[in-house]
Amino acid sequence: MPEVIFNGPAGRLEGRYHPSKTRNAPIGIVLHPHSQFGGTMNNPIVYQLYYMFAERGFSVLRFNFRGVGRSQGIYHGQDELSDAASALDWAQSINPDARACWVAGVSFGAWIGMQLLMRRPEVEGFISVAPPAGKFDFTFLAPCPSSGLIVHGDVDRVAQPKDVQALVDKLKTQRGIIIDQDIIPGANHFFDGKTDELMASCSGYLDKRLGRNSTAA
């Protein structure tokens, strides 16, 4: 789990990177929750998503947004999207043969991740954990270019179920993509006591997508 430093638009960004042993392995990028509320790349869910990708042969990167840990700059709110784009650029620069890319994000990181996939056509799948649909504007998903998983808790007071459901319902009307939804009973925004159920959902979805892809190949 080597520490890496790469250039972002507001200065150096700090990350952790796990390279795959396979030359053309897919890339995974994991984005952390809101930095103004304690979110870092060491968030337990971010950490587990990182290893979920690594265990499946991805070259995977998690990093701190600007102003977090040793990452330079200050919180902005929207420009963190540029940080994520720089992270993907860096991962692609050392994995030029990567055949695909996935993005996973938690809360604020899910919002940034879904903006990233709108800008980067190489992103073929996403996992959005507790996307805060009632707190941030998701209308940019018109249309959503990639299939993915949205997973959230039914007692989440930040990403409230009715708001997330409205987002899912909107995305499901679009042709050419498939949006999977999983609602974890009893889970709050931090999945306290429900992390095992969350990770079972995320890993099961990723395994399903990878299996389908490999069959098609």
Rank of each mutant, 00 (worst) to 15 (best):
F140M: 11
Y51F: 15
R99E: 14
D137I: 15
G186K: 12
G38A: 01
P33L: 11
A87M: 08
L198K: 08
Q48P: 00
Q165A: 14
P96G: 14
C101E: 05
L31M: 10
G211N: 02
K172R: 15
Q181G: 04
F136T: 09
F138E: 03
T22E: 13
I179C: 03
L206F: 13
R56E: 11
L117W: 07
E14A: 09
R62H: 04
G28Y: 01
A98T: 12
I178C: 12
K170Q: 10
S35D: 01
K172Q: 15
M118H: 08
A100F: 11
G77N: 04
G204C: 11
R209Q: 13
G57K: 05
V4E: 01
G8R: 00
E14W: 07
D169Y: 03
N64W: 06
Q36E: 14
S86G: 08
P121L: 06
G28P: 08
D89N: 12
V30G: 11
M41R: 09
Q78N: 10
G11I: 01
P121R: 10
N95I: 04
G77I: 02
L88M: 13
M1C: 00
A130K: 07
L61F: 01
L206I: 02
L167C: 11
D97C: 13
V68N: 04
I74M: 12
G69F: 02
C101H: 09
A91S: 11
D156F: 12
S203E: 15
Q174L: 09
A25K: 01
I183L: 02
G148Q: 10
D154P: 06
P131F: 13
D196I: 12
S86E: 06
L49W: 07
L81S: 03
P19C: 02
A110P: 15
I74D: 13
Y17W: 13
G204E: 10
A130H: 05
F191C: 05
I112T: 02
N188T: 06
F136M: 12
I127R: 05
P19D: 01
N42H: 11
N64E: 01
R209E: 08
R99T: 13
G77M: 03
G57P: 01
T215L: 14
Y47Q: 05
I179T: 06
L149D: 12
R66Q: 08
L31T: 06
Q115D: 04
Q92S: 10
L149V: 13
R212V: 01
I29H: 06
Q72K: 13
M118V: 06
V129K: 14
I74L: 14
P96F: 11
Y47L: 05
G109A: 08
P185N: 00
R12T: 10
F190H: 15
Q48I: 00
A104Y: 03
G134F: 03
K162G: 10
F65C: 06
G176S: 10
A217H: 07
M118D: 09
R120K: 04
